[in-house]
Design a protein around this nucleic acid. Structure first.
Length: 293
DNA sequence: ACCCAGGCGGGCG
DNA sequence: CGCCCGCATGGG
């Protein structure tokens, strides 16, 4: 059982983070529930909001102990983050203040590097619904089966299992033109590429290592660093962020991704990634800057 | 029919 | 550098 403040499961889950691509969010009898798949099993959460905090209960299937499951949840849902500090750092102007007021409790989640990589390779020129459908098919088709203690579950597919799939098998999951990138990067993660080594690298160096892969460009690399490695200075600049930042901070002037990165680094520094997530979700909810809005 | 979706690589001026 | 294009595919 966790008791935390400034935590909103629905916002955290639904704000376009990788957890939503391989997890399941649903209504339960007396509150909200969430389950997600990892390479070790399935974790189920149940949340109850009280006046001043949120109580999170959980159970699990798979190669977990009570302790390792608890650690997994704390890390993935960002339960150790100091939200007072986060909000103090990103509450820089009227727009961000509105975003914080509207989205209080939205946490940055932390997936495994490989999970985030697969999710954001799939995301390019794609929409949330189809991304989710594709990742869920990956789990169904390529995920190992866990069987034990009267329970069974599909696990998140390994790099090796995706690497040995054929291109037609991948496109059958709805990847489209991204299949060749997915297969190639999976092969790298399965052998040769030491993904854990990037934890020990600074942001810029780790980004260089990621973008050596065909199919991982500037934006996907930033997503992997932010959502997969927890490097909070990463500021993924997609079409939405570009629109919102141009509209709110640049008087609707067309601005290059390079300039936006520089702006974000100066304004939010080590918390730029957090600011990005609030800009992204708040901007989308208000369709800020979008043509015909 | 056309446009868009949490882009990227490649070619061109 | 910046700009434009093709890349698959389903939904507005």
């Amino acid at each position: 059982m966790f008791i935390v403040k400034d935590f909103d499961l629905k916002l955290t889950f639904e704000s376009g983070q990788p957890l939503a691509f391989y997890g399941e969010y649903r209504l339960e009898k007396n509150g909200k529930g969430l389950s997600y798949v990892t390479d070790r099993g399935v974790i189920r959460l149940h949340c109850e909001k009280t006046k001043s905090s949120t109580n999170i209960d959980y159970n699990y299937i798979g190669k977990y102990t009570a302790k390792s499951a608890e650690n997994d949840i704390r890390a993935r849902l960002g339960l150790s983050q100091d939200m007072r500090k986060v909000y103090a750092a990103i509450d820089t102007d009227q727009f961000m203040h509105e975003a914080i007021t509207s989205l209080r409790g939205l946490r940055m989640t932390k997936s495994d590097p490989w999970e985030a990589t697969l999710c954001y390779l799939t995301s390019q020129a794609n929409n949330m619904k189809r991304i989710r459908g594709t990742i869920r098919k990956f789990v169904d088709v390529f995920g190992d089966d866990y069987k034990g203690k009267g329970a069974c579950a599909k696990l998140f597919p390994s790099p090796a299992s995706i690497a040995k799939a054929t291109i037609p098998e991948l496109t059958a999951c709805g990847t489209g033109f991204r299949a060749k990138y997915i297969k190639g990067v999976a092969a790298s993660f399965a052998g040769g590429f030491d993904s854990d080594a990037l934890y020990g690298m600074d942001y810029a160096t780790a980004k260089l290592e990621l973008t050596k892969h065909r199919g991982i460009g500037d934006k996907v690399a930033d997503c992997v660093l932010l959502f997969g490695y927890g490097k909070m200075q990463a500021f993924p600049t997609d079409v939405w962020i570009k629109r919102v930042v141009e509209h709110v901070y640049f008087g609707s002037r067309k601005t290059s991704a390079r300039e936006i990165h520089s702006f974000a680094e100066n304004k939010w520094g080590p918390y730029a990634g957090y600011a990005q997530q609030y800009l992204f979700w708040h901007g989308r909810s208000k369709t800020i800057g979008k043509p015909s809005s």
